[in-house]
Design a protein around this nucleic acid. Structure first.
Length: 311
RNA sequence: GCCGGGUUAGCUCAGUGGUAGAGCACAUCACUGAAAAUGAUGGUGUCCCCAGUUCGAUUCUGGGACCCGGCA
């Protein structure tokens, strides 16, 4: 069995899950979620989790636990190998570009585990001070990192632990033959869909979900660190603003998030973009058909290559 | 009808006698163990209309329109 990978990417609310659901059915695939927030149990409405079909990498941690790309990478690479062994195709689905990179490309992250104490200590310094500190030790990475406090701290953490400069690896070598399918939706329509979805989920009890997490003892700081729904609602529950303001602010935040995702995915020239014109059953079905074609061609192409080689 | 207050960016509003700003929105970019995180960058305008004063008015004066209060 030839190793091959399909990834379904796109901004939030473009319909990745629906497409994945149809694809794994059609191709007898295994869906693997690439979503940094759906890995947590109990974060359902706020993450838009779809439990109507089997997905790996969902509900694997308790709320409040720490996680990182490296752990994600380890788990998913293992899962992928198992999937290959069973003769199936893994379908990666999700919008966390950073995590996706760790799987589709050969990436090795610096072997320096996060050190909370060191981070806490460094975060007391101002950005200016951190910049100067990094500049002294590693001008290249200082230039790359800019004024981003988190990344300044991480760079210093690596230098501190390894005693060496931050390694750079911009290699973009695919780990396996990979088909990247991207779903594209017109901006205005996407924003509209995002807004509708927020309203729907509020009605379904998204605020209650967050409240009960807090009641169960999940840290508010941790919840706010998740961003978007969990941050907005936690702050609302702390009575920082009105419900109306919270909802509008959340919608804007998700718009911005979807833009950041779009920026991320634009990095990949290999993506085969499929456009969803309208959020109608008909257009969604058409999207599924187009995607099926692409996957079909991809699988066939690989088989042809193998048979050529064996001749 | 009278008396106040207002009219400036898509929204909420600051401001100045030398044609303008903030926050949000919007747009672009970055991203090497926090990534739904964290940052960087950018454009936006008949300054309500008409006339007057002035070298020059968005700013001052007069008139008008519209909005919001209060009193009738």
């Amino acid at each position: 069995m030839q190793k091959k990978l399909v990834a379904i990417v796109g901004a939030t609310a473009t319909g990745k899950s629906d497409l994945a659901k149809a694809m794994i059915k059609k191709f007898n695939g295994v869906a693997i979620s690439v979503d940094s927030r759906q890995i947590y149990r109990g974060l359902d409405l706020g993450t838009g989790k779809d439990k109507s079909f089997p997905q790996k990498m969902i509900d694997i941690l308790d709320a409040g636990e720490k996680f990182s790309v490296v752990e994600f990478q380890k788990k998913v690479l293992d899962l992928i190998e198992k999937t290959f062994a069973s003769g199936k195709i893994p379908f990666l689905v999700g919008g966390t570009g950073f995590y996706l990179d760790s799987i589709i490309f050969e990436r090795n992250y610096p072997a320096v585990a996060p050190d909370e104490n060191l981070r806490k200590c460094l975060s007391k310094l101002t950005i200016k001070e951190l910049c100067q500190k990094l500049l002294q030790k590693d001008t290249d990475s200082a230039r790359r990192v800019g004024k981003n406090k988190r990344r300044l701290i991480r760079a210093l953490e690596i230098i501190e632990k390894t005693g060496e400069k931050v390694p750079k690896f911009y290699a973009r070598k695919f780990r396996y033959p990979t088909l990247l399918l991207g779903i594209e939706v017109n901006r205005d329509k996407l924003y509209q869909r995002i807004d509708e979805r927020v309203d729907e989920r509020i009605k379904l009890g998204m605020i209650k979900e967050v409240r009960s997490l807090i009641e169960r003892g999940v840290s508010k700081i941790w919840l706010k660190g998740l961003g978007l729904e969990y941050r907005a609602i936690t702050e609302f529950l702390e009575a920082k603003n009105t419900k109306r303001e919270m909802i509008q602010g959340l919608k804007f935040d998700i718009h911005a998030f979807s833009r950041r995702q779009a920026t991320w995915f634009r990095q990949y020239p290999e993506i085969e973009w499929l456009e969803l014109i309208e959020y109608t059953k008909k257009d969604k079905q058409q999207l599924v058909e187009k995607a099926e074609e692409k996957v079909h061609d991809f699988v066939k192409l690989l088989k042809d290559e193998i048979s050529k080689k064996s001749i």
